[in-house]
Amino acid sequence: MKISVIITLKKDVLDPQGKVIHQALDGMGFNNINEVRQGKYFEIDTKETNPKKAKDKVEEMCKKLLANLVIENYKIIDAQ
């Protein structure tokens, strides 16, 4: 079963990489952008077959390793 996780920086945390990407896009002519924030995306293929259990385990992974909750939020996308 595959579960995906998206990690984003919290609202108040400075994202210099996002800023530079914004500037680059701006320079390429994409002038309608308010802000760019860069994040991370994970695909976790687990042997677990119970979706609820799999999701709970991934949540534990997010809290313990994948995200740093001081600066980041995580969002688990349900198993497909």
Binding site: V13, L14, P16, Q17, V20, N68, V70, I71
Partner: peptide
């Protein structure tokens, strides 16, 4: 900081 022994985090340098 990642162990939580001291508070906070270290982000990418401001000017990259």
């Amino acid at each position: 900081v990642e162990t939580g022994l001291v508070p906070g985090v270290l982000l990418r340098n401001k000017y990259l």
